[in-house]
Design a binder for these strands. Structure first.
Lengths: 234, 234
DNA sequence: CGCCCTGTTGATACGATTCAAATATCGTGG
DNA sequence: CCACGATATTTGAATCGTATCAACAGGGCG
């Protein structure tokens, strides 16, 4: 069990017009005139690893865009079981449920140091009113979330432990330049794949011994992607 | 392995204004004037059990509303593994991906005799243009699909075989009046829960022997819901 | 009637969980 | 900077659960 570090820091007001990842974010298609409607500022924040961003059942007034870092969404069952249902990284939008419901279905927690932009739901609503471009962009975001959830089911919740771990490592290394990627605790890895911490650890250890991955420092994984792919493709 | 029966039959043009489930469907919020824009007719169809409605990778031009019956969405992995990622029943909308992509990510198949309404994607687009009520309704549908996917992960892909089966039976019996519900093959039950056919069968047989469920005729299940709930709630 | 498909059951092997202990790592204060 | 305690990770051994392979029963259909 972990005890939660809790550090979030406001790092300024976003300048959405000149955002470095603007072409990939929700407001990509906005026109100059639209930005003038942004009377309320868009805050940027940094979260330390382990920080809770929002809590399942808590009031939902905000959407978030990931500028950098990694965020997990965790869902709980009545009996206390918990399962990580999604991971969000650069350019991902989460908390979309705030558009429909008034509480979040998941708990969102930073896994790495994470920069987020905070989009108040009424700002998004105001901007989207009569703006079918933004509506379409929002739907594309729902679509992305749903594809991701489906992938979670087929890739990370099906088959043997080893396959799941391998598919996940491929997912994690995918967007990185080299095959080097930053992992997180074995406990979270287990919660992600529906395995116990021990099984997650054992499987990682075995992949290391067999040379499919290296771990130069803790939670810094270097993957031999070609060989990993061979393990899960026929 | 099954071999696909293939019967789909056109059963008329829907009268959306007077639809018996209108208050629950996508067009619930439309006004009279909107219906006048519906130049292209909305077809109604019946599918026999086993019929494929659309195929993963195939061209996506249509959204479907379930009027009655049961539909599965199946996703495939490169190695041939398949997994059922969602079930759709009365009033559910599926094929939303057609709004964003030009191919479907899943294969859709009728599990029971199923009545569907076919909504051409350009009709939906035309109606939604400038109609923020319909946009909102569409987002609510994305939201519902996503909640369902998340539930699939935590309830049907996590924990022991027995718990999964029990949670699923509760899900299946939920909307029914009594606790009587119509199941489908053990093979599909396995594909749904990430289990083998044999394990699905064994678990069902054991639940029967222990009196948690009865099966008066094949695939007609009567659940003792209170006792089933005790099995999965703490 | 015999065949095919589905569901059930059995035996066995394998894999994952569990509980426990040893080891490594991190952060903190001396 | 090092030593310490707290926290994560790794490893071990035993148990339990699920997959696998195989055989058989029953129902529907040609």
């Amino acid at each position: 069990m972990k005890h939660v570090a809790l550090a979030e820091a406001w790092t300024g007001v976003a300048d959405c017009r000149h955002c470095t990842i603007r072409n990939a974010v929700l407001f990509a298609g906005l026109k100059e005139a639209d930005f003038d409607q942004l009377h309320r500022p868009i805050d940027q924040l940094v979260y330390a690893p382990g920080t809770e961003i929002y809590s399942a059942g808590g009031p939902a007034h905000t959407l978030y865009t990931v500028r950098s870092g990694l965020v997990k969404l965790t869902q709980y069952l009545p009996d206390g079981t918990q399962r990580i249902v999604r991971l969000l990284r650069k350019t991902d939008l989460f908390g979309l449920e705030a558009l429909i419901d008034d509480s979040y279905p998941h708990t969102a927690t930073a896994l790495h140091a994470t920069e987020l932009c905070r989009l108040p739901v009424d700002v998004v609503r105001a901007l989207s009113h009569g703006n079918s471009g933004l509506y379409h962009e929002l739907m594309a975001r729902w679509h992305k979330a749903l594809s991701s959830a489906d992938r979670w089911i087929t890739e990370f919740s099906t088959g043997a432990a080893r396959e799941r771990v391998v598919r996940f490592l491929i997912w994690l290394a995918e967007p990185e330049e080299g095959a080097r990627c930053e992992l997180f605790s074995r406990e979270d890895l287990g919660a992600l794949l529906g395995l116990t911490t021990e099984t997650a650890s054992r499987t990682m250890a075995e992949l290391k011994r067999q040379g499919f991955i290296r771990e130069p420092k803790p939670n810094q994984i270097v993957c031999d992607l070609p060989r990993l792919r061979q393990l899960v493709e026929p």
